[in-house]
Design a protein around this nucleic acid. Sequence first.
DNA 1: GTCTATATCTCGATAGAC
DNA 2: GTCTATCGAGATATAGAC
Lengths: 213, 213
Amino acid sequence: MTTGIETTEGTEERIFEAARKVFARKGRDGARMQEIADEAGINRALLHYYFRSKQGLFEAVFAHMFEQYMRSFDAVLEPGQPFPELLRRFVDHYIDYAIEHEDMIRLMMGENLRGASILGEALAAAKHSESSLPNRIEHAIRAAIHSGEIREVDPSHTLLTIVSACIHFIVMKPTVQAMNPDAEADFSAFTEARKQHITDLLLLGMQPVEVAS
Amino acid sequence: MTTGIETTEGTEERIFEAARKVFARKGRDGARMQEIADEAGINRALLHYYFRSKQGLFEAVFAHMFEQYMRSFDAVLEPGQPFPELLRRFVDHYIDYAIEHEDMIRLMMGENLRGASILGEALAAAKHSESSLPNRIEHAIRAAIHSGEIREVDPSHTLLTIVSACIHFIVMKPTVQAMNPDAEADFSAFTEARKQHITDLLLLGMQPVEVAS
DNA sequence: GTCTATATCTCGATAGAC
DNA sequence: GTCTATCGAGATATAGAC
C-alpha cells in the first residue's frame, strides 16, 4: 500500500519543514538546532550536512516563506476592479493571510527589528521591479486618483497606512488582547470587525473632495 | 573645581543608563552583560551585585522606560480641545516621541513578539484604570461621537488604527527605507509628511455622515 | 547519508580576595 | 563596593566511525 513516494520524502525537505515550524515558534535566535533536529526526527549533525549553518538554514527557510507571502497576493490584484472592491479584497486577504501565517509576520518583524539585513536582496528586487507587490498597489492607487475614484492621496503613505492597519494589531497581539476584552474573548470576531473598520475608515478618508457646492 | 556631586554619580545609575543604551541597541537577547559593563565603565560582577540577574536588569530598565513613555502623553490630552486638534496633537506627539525614543518602541515590539509577559502588570493596570492612556483616548473618541464631531466609529479599532499608523513605519524602518526612495533620502521629511497624511486621512475617514441631502 | 562523540566557544552567574 | 578568576550550562559546529 506504500506508494514509494511518501516513505522517504527526502531528508532535506523534512529538515526544511521542521525548521520552518521551529523558527516560527521561537524566532531566529530562540530556535535551537536540537529542537529542529527532534522535529525532523534526525540528529543535529545532519542539519549541518544539508545546510551549512544555522544562519544558512534560516535564510533558506525565510526566503521561501517570503516568496510565498508575496505570491499570495497575485489573485487579489486583478486589474479592472473598481478601487473600493480592490481595497476591500486586499485588506481581507492581507489580514486572513497574516492570521494564518502569523509565523511569517513575526519572523519578518523580527528581521526588521534586527536591521533586516536578510531582507536586503528580496526588497531591492521588489523596489526595482515594476511588477512587485508594492509597485502594483501604488500603481492602482495612482490609477484610482486619475480616474477620480479617490482624492489625491500620497500613494506611498497610503499603502503604508493600509499595511500598518492590517498587520500591526497582529504583531502587537499580546498588548491588544491585554487592553481589549473583545479581542481576548474572541479574536476571530475581533479580526472580522477590524476588516470592516479598516475598509470603511480608509475608503471614507480617501473619498474624492466635492468640487465647490 | 569638582562639585563632589558629579564625581561618583552613583554606580547604580551608571549601570542603569548603560543598560538602557545597550538593551536598546541589541535587544533583550542580543545584549551582553559584558557590553553593558564596558559601557558603564565597570565589570560584570557589579551588574549582578546591584541587579540580581540580566532579566532583573532588563525588567528594571523596561519598566522605567515604559512609565516615561506613558507619562509623555499627559500634556497632549488636555480636556476641552476640539477633536481634530486633539488628534493632530496626539499624532504629532506620538510620532515625535517614537522617533526620538526608537529604542523604547523597538524594545516594546520585541517583548510583544516574545509574548509580552513582561508587559503583563503594566498592561493590566492600564486596562483597569480609568485614567490610563488608552482609556482616556477611547473616552475622547466617544465624547467626540456624542458631540457630533465625528461619526460613529468603533473606539477600540480607531485607536488601534491611529497607533498602527504612527508606529508601524518606524518598526518597519528597514523595509520602508528599502522600498521608498523618499524615506531613505530624508527620513525626517518623510516623517513630517507622514504626520500630515495620517491626520488628514483619519479625520476625513471619521467625518460625520451628512443627514440625507 | 546518517549516526555518536566531542571540540570549541560564549555567556550568565558566583566565589572570594581586597 | 569593587575587583579577578572561574565555574558550569548550553549552544553551534565538526570529526570520524559505520
